[in-house]
């Protein structure tokens, strides 16, 4: 049975990056532009995207498993992308619980 009292909300941040070895033309362009603008010390620029959402799950283990699964199946294309996942328990006061 789904009981809201039994679940915890997690704030999830999924950072998607191109895998090492996959050309990142956006990162390379940003790096060249920064040098042109007078920031020559910047290197290793990689461009990615961030996806944030709130997830309700029974435990942190369950939440981690679900996020891993939805990343693998949908949020990233494992042929070219990697994900870094961070998860924190949502502030109950802020969410009204």
């Amino acid at each position: 049975m789904w009981n809201p009292e039994d679940v915890t909300s997690y704030n999830v941040l999924v950072q998607v990056h191109l895998r090492p070895g996959i050309a990142d033309p956006q990162g390379a362009t940003i790096e060249r532009s920064l040098a042109t603008l007078g920031f020559p010390g910047v290197s290793d620029v990689r461009m990615g995207k961030a996806i944030v959402f709130t997830l309700e799950a029974e435990s942190e283990t369950a939440a981690t498993a679900e996020v891993d699964e939805l990343c693998r199946r949908f949020l990233i294309n494992p042929v070219i992308e990697d994900a870094v996942i961070s998860m924190t328990e949502a502030d109950r006061a802020a969410s009204g619980r």
Binding site: L18, I22, A23, P25, Q26, T29, N77, V79
Partner: peptide
């Protein structure tokens, strides 16, 4: 077709954007 796994690999942004 590549996203669906009916064909292997992926199409990424063109070289030089």
């Amino acid at each position: 077709l590549t996203e669906a796994g009916l064909l292997p690999g992926a199409l990424q942004k063109n070289r030089g954007l």
